[in-house]
Simulated scan of single mutants.
Amino acid sequence: MLTRYPDRDTARVDTAQRRFLKAGNLGLDTPLVWEMYGDQYRLP
């Protein structure tokens, strides 16, 4: 992302992905549930 769009902020993506890493879900096993800007998201 930084190579293709060097001027765009990727902090929101980094923050969401970091939650799964800290939880030990390196395989991104579903369901994935996260909250961003007060909205909850869920991938079944």
Rank of each mutant, 00 (worst) to 15 (best):
A16L: 05
K22I: 02
D9T: 11
R19T: 12
P44N: 09
L21D: 12
D7V: 01
D39M: 13
E35C: 05
G27M: 15
L28G: 03
G27L: 11
Y37S: 09
D14P: 00
R8D: 06
A23C: 05
G24W: 06
G27Y: 04
F20R: 02
A23T: 01
R12F: 13
A11S: 15
R19L: 05
L26C: 05
F20T: 00
D7T: 07
D9G: 06
A11D: 11
M36F: 10
A11V: 07
L21N: 03
D39E: 15
P31G: 00
A11M: 12
G38L: 03
P6K: 03
L28D: 02
P6D: 13
L43T: 06
V33F: 00
L28R: 06
K22Q: 12
Y41D: 08
D29A: 14
F20K: 00
Y41P: 01
G27S: 15
L32F: 01
R42C: 05
T10S: 13
R12H: 14
T3C: 13
L32R: 01
P6A: 10
L28P: 00
L21Y: 10
L43P: 02
L21C: 04
L28H: 01
V33K: 06
N25P: 01
D39I: 11
D9V: 05
Y5N: 04
L26R: 08
D14Q: 15
Q17W: 09
V33Y: 00
R42T: 15
R4T: 12
P44I: 11
L32C: 05
D39G: 02
Y41A: 11
D14S: 11
A16G: 00
Q40L: 07
D29V: 08
R4I: 14
G38S: 14
L43M: 15
N25W: 03
Y37C: 09
Y37T: 11
V13I: 13
M36A: 13
Q40G: 05
M36C: 12
T3E: 10
T10H: 07
Q40K: 08
D7A: 14
L21S: 06
L43F: 14
V33M: 06
A23Y: 02
L21Q: 04
L21H: 06
R12C: 13
Y41Q: 10
Y5T: 03
L26T: 10
P6H: 03
Q17E: 08
N25F: 07
G24M: 06
A16Q: 01
A23H: 12
N25K: 01
Y5G: 02
L28W: 14
R8Y: 09
T30Y: 14
T30C: 05
N25R: 06
D29F: 01
Q17V: 09
M1C: 10
L21W: 08
G24P: 04
V33G: 01
A16K: 00
L28F: 10
L21A: 13
Q17S: 08
R19S: 04
M36Q: 15
V13F: 06
L2Q: 15
W34A: 02
P44L: 07
G27T: 11
L26I: 15
R42E: 14
A16E: 01
